[in-house]
Design a binder for these strands. Structure first.
Lengths: 244, 244
DNA sequence: ATAATAGTGTCTTTCAGACATTATGAT
DNA sequence: ATCATAATGTCTGAAAGACACTATTAT
């Protein structure tokens, strides 16, 4: 098939082309954005793609190390949150042959990131996930991979405090709710949300306030950012918030 | 490293050894059992292992097809339930080199299975998951893979009706509860469980009864076995049921 | 009748949703 | 004073846990 497809007959039966593809998400101006890079190589040259790729087996002893390396290379962050979402594979994903990708969800706060720290020299950019279709098709099946990752994220957000990984050090409960609403594309009842968060023993009131032209809101901080809290019940997001 | 390791320098950088490893579970005599096969080849010859292995890329267009093929080969079942759990990879898992495995959880009813249908001619056996340590170490990291798969299963069982895939066509609510309790290694309150199941609109009373020396229990059947029900709240299993 | 277990009723607790009310700072 | 919105109180409803009670069969 492809003219540039490389040949590797020996042991081809046992091995597959493999890549790790992190879906790196952050909040920018109230909207969820995903990190993309522009491919400089065939196949799919000049298309936007997830900032993943082949695993450097010499420097990575296991999958987790491979993901951490990708994240460091693309965002400059050393301890970004990443969780494995799923693995997809098949003969149609990549013209070079039967290939496999493990998709991770990585959530981080935009304040912590400096894209100029990007190791790779590629063109990288944040893009709002809700406008991805305006960008045209991404490389490979990355549109599909992102959609599945977001679906998984939405499933988990209704019963966990995962969105905390998108928040800056200090934030108001209102800001936190907006992040939940953005992820769920729906509206949440304010009092329920407030109670849920303040009774869960996961937040600390810093005592300071943040004012935006009305009653100032209390600034909170997470008590323990390293472990994900599971709430006893599930949130219910209402439709609406369609346009903007 | 290993003396039998095959060489495939061309493009080795891009590809990894890959296998699919289903954790196939069923209930036997009230206990959760996992399907194992005895390896007939090096490495790890003569050790018990998960019934997985390399993917036949010529006959499988994607990952799902690969898992379905494994299940058919090992159990003779064509439409067994299987769900992807996670993927693990690294340089220490297999002496032949950096390798990757995607683990699936497959749940099925023992009544449906005839191990003599096994395609492969290997020695296969069911083994109780709670006695796996008595069997000695499994091949590769399969003890760890099974433990992680079971952990995932336990997490999901408290808010879904996944165990239905382990039940025969008709069953009593008591039998269903015993399956939940076996998976969770805990005791569930009978009335809560009964209400949860009978109010969820997932069961049909067949009208028939099953008697075991006292008041006969109603026999139920699942209304729709193909979609997993999500309950609004979570079950809480109590300790105990230690020995047996 | 008694034993044994299936099934049910009732009460309490927990927690989310809805709605109304109070609090606080900017103007 | 008025406005905007943060925070909270109260009520309701859904669903799980606990416990007691009733039902039905075998013996």
């Amino acid at each position: 098939m492809g003219s540039k497809a490389k040949k590797f007959e020996p042991n081809e039966y046992d091995s597959v082309l493999f890549s790790v593809d992190p879906v790196i998400l952050t909040m920018i101006n109230g909207h969820l954005n995903v990190l993309l890079v522009k491919r400089e190589q065939e196949p799919e040259k000049d298309r936007w793609a997830l900032p993943g790729g082949r695993v450097d087996k010499k420097n990575c002893d296991d999958l987790d190390a491979a993901v951490k390396l990708k994240l460091r290379q693309k965002t400059g962050l050393d301890h970004a949150y990443a969780e494995q979402a799923f693995t997809e594979g098949g003969s149609d994903m990549d013209p070079r042959g039967w290939s496999l990708t493990t998709v991770y969800i990585s959530l981080l706060c935009n304040d912590d990131i400096d894209l100029s720290k990007n190791d790779t020299g590629e063109e990288v950019a944040w893009y709002p996930v809700k406008k991805l279709d305006e960008l045209g098709p991404l490389a490979f099946w990355h549109n599909l991979l992102i959609e599945r990752a977001l679906s998984r994220l939405r499933d988990k957000v209704v019963y966990t405090d995962l969105p905390m990984r998108l928040m800056p050090e200090e934030f108001t409960i209102h800001e936190l709710r907006q992040v939940y609403e953005e992820i769920l594309s729906g509206v949440l009842a304010r009092p329920s949300f407030f109670k849920r968060m303040t009774t869960a023993d996961i937040l600390v009131d810093t005592g300071r306030k943040k004012s935006l032209g009305s009653r100032p809101a209390a600034l909170y901080r997470y008590k323990n950012r390293s472990k994900t809290h599971i709430f006893p019940g599930m949130l219910e997001a209402k439709r609406e918030e369609s346009m903007r």
